[in-house]
């Protein structure tokens, strides 16, 4: 690991100023489960590391029937995975969080880090896409909000400006007749990276499926929504096997996977279809129960 200077600011403004001052040479430290590994492997060699650990208010889950769910950026994956409200109403998020690394890793890894790292394969990203997350961004100049669909710009890149820091994620309230699921294609049962990740969320209105959201991970340069497939599910009532199949094909077609050492693009496309069908069906089942 190369030497670096370490800061522990106590306000977002202070952290933001440091980040802006050392723009390009500084990295934010949240859980450290990506950054520290990169620094040890010398693929990351920041001259300045700014810890977010001592900034009050960045960690925590709050829920209000009226305003919905707020998750601080420093909230640990393990907390998301075990939170009763998230498991019940925002199930795909709990399931996405539960797929990150091992339990030990999830006690360190944060939602803000997972999303800010902007990996196309981030397990929580697909869930955020389908649960309509709004990303709270803070800086020395104030606050702004970006919808999750507009956050990612490419592998490892986001719309964040120099000095900007993700502070929280806000989710609209989810009614009891809603359901969601995240599924991940992997070889190893636990502690594997997503070959493909798919999250789906639906709301039922008088038995009809609406507000369908389908999020895909690891099949494009950024996590993406399968909007064509969403439209198909929303358009038809009831959602038959054939409709699910059509949606699966549409999601497959909308994905833009690559071939790499893990698997081929063709296989990824097929899995997008399979997991789209399975997650939409499960989301509907969960909304009904």
């Amino acid at each position: 690991m190369r030497n670096f200077e370490f800061f522990e600011p106590t306000t977002v403004e202070e952290a933001s100023s440091l980040l802006a001052q050392y723009n390009g040479k500084a990295r934010l430290l949240a859980g450290g489960t990506d950054l520290i590994i990169g620094m040890k492997a010398r693929t990351e060699m920041p001259e300045y590391v700014i810890s977010l650990e001592n900034i009050p208010g960045l960690d925590g889950i709050t829920y209000d029937e009226g305003s919905g769910l707020r998750v601080g950026a420093m909230t640990k994956m393990r907390a998301l995975e075990t939170d009763a409200i998230i498991r019940d109403r925002y199930t795909a998020l709990a399931e996405g969080a539960a797929e990150v690394g091992s339990i030990q890793i999830r006690h360190l890894a944060t939602l803000g880090g997972n999303i800010g790292h902007a990996s196309p394969a981030a397990d929580a990203a697909a869930a955020l896409l389908v649960l309509d997350a709004q990303v709270q961004i803070g800086s020395a100049d104030g606050q702004r909000t970006v919808p999750i669909d507009a956050l990612f710009t490419g592998p490892g890149t986001t719309v964040l400006e120099p000095g900007e820091i993700i502070t929280a994620f806000e989710f609209p309230p989810r009614p009891a007749n809603s359901g969601s699921q995240y599924l991940k294609q992997k070889i190893r049962e636990v502690m594997d990276l997503a070959f493909v990740g798919v999250a789906s969320a639906v709301t039922l209105n008088d038995g009809a499926v609406e507000n369908t959201r389908i999020g895909l991970a690891a099949v494009a340069p950024t996590p993406i929504r399968a909007t064509e497939a969403e439209g198909i599910i929303n358009r038809y009532h009831p959602v038959t096997k054939e409709i699910l199949e059509q949606a699966a094909e549409a999601a497959s077609a909308q994905s833009r996977p690559i071939s790499d050492l893990r698997c081929s693009a063709e296989y990824r496309r097929q899995i997008v279809g399979v997991l789209t069908r399975r997650t939409v069906q499960t989301a509907i089942n969960r909304a009904q129960s």
């Binding site: 070889i187 190893r188 049962e189 636990v190 502690m191 594997d192 990276l193 050492l261 893990r262």
Partner: peptide, 10 residues
Amino acid sequence: VDYRVPTSAD
């Protein structure tokens, strides 16, 4: 990461 050894869950 990409050289997979199984865990007890497999």
